[in-house]
Structure formats: C-alpha cells, structure tokens
C-alpha cells in the first residue's frame, strides 16, 4: 500500500474523498446558474460592466479578474468578485 492509498483509505473511512464531494460541488455550481436564470451572454455583460466600473477608479489586472456565484448553507446566493488591484508606492493609482 502506498502512502497515497493509505491517505485515501483513511479519508474514505470518514466518508470523505468519495465521489459525493464532486456531486455536491457540481450541484452547487449548476444550481447557482439555474437559480439566477441568467444566460451566458447576460453573465458576460454583467462581468464586463463590473470590470469597467472598477477600472474607472482603480488599476486592476483584467486577466486575474473573476466573478462567480456561490452558495453555502450560511450565505445563499452570493456573488464573489475578485479583482487583483495594482498598487504602487505613493498616491493611489487612479487611472483618470
């Protein structure tokens, strides 16, 4: 038995690491979309609008910009936006 196998077996014995974790995360993701009822185009438009809105005020790295919808038992239906802000020394980097 390799160490990886042993770890997997320990995880399984606690009901973890099985295929249900994949089922749960896939469901949470797909249900977010189902519940929002937004088309792919509408989501992209929203993404662009938020990206532009932030860019008006801050220098951000568009590559690293992400927008995702998450659901958990405690906070249902939240939108998480992550924007890597490029901050230098001195005054804030306003692009205007």
């Amino acid at each position: 038995m390799t160490l990886t196998e042993l770890i997997q077996r320990i995880q399984h014995s606690f009901g973890k690491g099985g295929s249900k974790d994949e089922a749960k995360s896939r469901l949470l993701l797909v249900l977010q979309d189902d519940r929002l009822g937004l088309t792919a185009e509408e989501k992209e438009a929203l993404r662009q609008d938020i990206l532009e809105a932030i860019r008006k005020h801050l220098k951000i790295d568009a590559e690293g910009f992400t927008m995702e919808f998450v659901s958990s038992p405690t906070d249902q239906n939240k939108m998480h936006v992550s924007a890597p802000v490029q901050v230098g020394r001195g005054p804030a980097n306003f692009s205007k």
Binding site: Q11, H12, F14, G15, K16, G17, G18, S19, K20, D21, A23, K24, L27, L28, L31, S71, S72, P73
Partner: peptide, 13 residues
C-alpha cells in the same frame, strides 16, 4: 464510503 450525498449535503444544497 463517501459515494452518496448524505442528509446534510442535500440540505446544504
């Protein structure tokens, strides 16, 4: 075995 959603998983969802 961790191969089926349990009651808490289903309720979380």
């Amino acid at each position: 075995r961790g191969d089926m959603l349990d009651q808490q998983d289903v309720l979380d969802i």
